[in-house]
Amino acid sequence: MANSDHTIASISHISKSFGSKKVLSNITINIREGQILGLIGPSGSGKTTTIKCLLGMERADTGFAAIFGQKMPNRQILEKIGYMGQTDALYENLTALENLTFFGNLMGISGAELTATINKNMALVDLTDSLHQIVANFSGGMKRRLSLAIALLANPDLIILDEPTVGIDPSLRLDIWTQLRTLAIAQKAIIVTTHVMDEAEKCDLIGLIINGEIFALGTPAELKEKFHAASIEEVFLKAEVSSK
């Protein structure tokens, strides 16, 4: 598998059906270190399934996915991946610290190392003061931020975030994107799905998925040129119309 060019993850010709319904057909995407890949597309278009095939949570019918040059599914590789799903996936009866400790332990981190990374990431998402609060008392935005902190705990080289900024205030959303960019500069690879088009503009690479197919793949500038659009939002609308 080609990782001489610093490829972190690759999806090659993946197709997937649930029963008779074709969900993905012939998806091919590569992401290199230091890149932010944005997957955009209408809901139900197959963004989440693409991510699940990459992680090895679903098995593709044809094609294959590889991360760090290892074919997925592979349990050991998961140690180096930070994943945040569409739901917050938190234990509401536990405190923020207990949630962090639990998932940290599952990633194989403990002791002083765990404490250090918890403090660092809670500062990042601006939740340091709420470390000992029960999660059930958190607001929606706080839960999302805690969930993000958990995804970043193990200092992963590949970060996969499914709708990371839903329900987060604009100013904090900006902070998070600044942070994602910092991570990218530190040679991490980041995959983000999003509905927010101005966020898509901040990605290095955009994959436009419609009806389970890669409708377009390229830098924001390339896509705008190809569709003669002034913004990614316009690209999205034009793509949706022309695919029907």
Partner: peptide, 10 residues
């Protein structure tokens, strides 16, 4: 969704 997240760890 915690089961998915659990299983996204090693």
């Amino acid at each position: 969704g915690t089961l998915d997240r659990l299983l996204a760890t090693p």
